[in-house]
Design a protein around this nucleic acid. Structure first.
Lengths: 251, 251
DNA sequence: CCTAATCTGCGTATGGCATACGCTTATCTG
DNA sequence: CAGATAAGCGTATGCCATACGCAGATTAGG
């Protein structure tokens, strides 16, 4: 019943569905070791330090040996992301509403990206198909159970939250990294940005930006408050739809 | 008054603020020509085809000559994105509400990314600072004028919409590209995904995913409807806050 | 008008990178 | 024990960004 759909090589690999051959020498490594070595390098020295030869030397094998474990470097990166993301936070509790559950799910996304910032540089290769990604999907859907949202709407809502988490984590991590590079604090980097914007827009017709800069409120920003702001807007919007549906169907 | 803030080299470059030296030979190219050549290659053959030597040969110059125009390849990519994104759609009209204006602004983001899909592969290098990026920022802020939102809230709202536009455009473009690569239609690629998901989750505890697959509603999806769904949730959430503020202050 | 300063284009070289190919050797099946 | 198969990996190919420095063009200042 399952057999009539062929899984792509990289997917089968991620799910551990490759049947081991019985002939030939034993492998001296496991796929997990290769993936772990990649993650360790990425975490310690950044994604740019992850090359096939670097991973191989970390494991004490020759570069080309890795290709017995992984079809391409990109597949390795996908596996690294799936492993480093890890499993989602615990699922919606029995008496937990959809909203706190989905909020926790979103926070979990941000937390994972903050723990392993290199992941934001691995380009998304498609819809979630690897084991942990699917677990995240499952828990996200669990959070939206019983809300009256249709299938495609539940998917869209999850995409909305995870996309926001990713873009927000990316922006803040970029600032932290720029600060580290230039020996400044992240606050200084933020301040610089507004100063540059002020200089550049001074001669031109940018009334709304000048208004913004004039309010002088943008420096004392707590980043977590900003994250919550966007998340709460999304959740408010979803809540409005769920409530409207519930009202319409009970009437 | 402006002079006490030094602009980084790449920013000055993007804004055309480099004072031309008077000594030395005339340049045979302009920065715009270099950027245009890069865009043309990216559009025709994808971002991976854009190398310094490829751009140079397109222009009939030697590779190293480009470095007289651009400090690094990454700066070139940033300039390419800023130029290819182009200016934002026309700003909020005098009698236009914030909501349609912000919706148009979001649609404009998606439209730009769909016109030049290679842009999604250029990693975001920081907050928007290049000329067109700043124009987009300005118009986004104009859309939110008079809503009662604070400065940091206006920024967060704009980030929310542009982040969503980017992640949505990325996902759909990935599917279109995967389809082109395998000679399938995008619909077939989507169908395959759900089939793979069904096979992989069949043995495991994925009740919410099975529920989703069981609804059988996910195949006939109109992508633009899905985009609108997420956008409307965001806008509803923002509207809720704006209305609550207005009610509180008029009371 | 000349000389010194300065800039342009670019040839060359360095030190990477992913990965195709094919060989040797270890291991298992029948 | 023979044949099949797979593992590890040496070698080679064809990319890549970019550091460095030189030759020739152009101009400013005397």
């Amino acid at each position: 019943m399952n057999g009539d759909v062929e899984l792509p090589e990289n997917v089968a690999l991620a799910w551990g569905l490759r049947d081991r051959p019985s002939r030939g020498p034993k492998r001296s490594l496991s796929l997990d070791q290769v993936v772990a070595a990649g993650i360790q390098i990425a975490q310690a020295e950044g994604l740019t330090a992850v090359s096939m030869s670097r991973v191989a030397s970390e494991l004490g094998v020759a570069t080309m040996s890795l290709y017995r474990y992984v079809p391409t470097k990109h597949d390795l990166l996908d596996l690294m992301v799936d492993t480093a993301f890890g499993p989602p936070p615990h699922p919606r509790g029995a008496d937990e509403g959809w909203r706190p559950a989905l909020a926790r799910w979103g926070e979990g996304n941000v937390a994972a990206l903050r723990r392993q910032p290199w992941m934001r540089h691995v380009p998304i290769s498609g819809p979630p198909i690897n084991p942990n990604q699917v677990r995240w999907l499952e828990y996200g859907l669990v959070a939206l159970r019983g809300t009256g949202l249709r299938a495609s709407e539940r998917i869209s809502t999850i995409m909305l939250v995870s996309g926001y988490a990713r873009s927000w984590a990316t922006l803040t991590a970029d600032i932290v990294e720029a600060a580290a590079r230039t020996g400044q604090t992240p606050e200084q980097v933020g301040l610089r940005y507004w100063q540059h914007l002020a200089v550049l827009t001074a001669p031109g017709p940018y009334p709304a930006i000048h208004e913004l800069l004039g309010e002088g409120e943008e420096y004392d920003d707590d980043v977590d408050l900003e994250w919550r702001f966007g998340l709460d807007r999304i959740l408010d919007g979803v809540a409005a739809m769920i409530d409207a549906r519930a009202a319409a169907s009970s009437q």
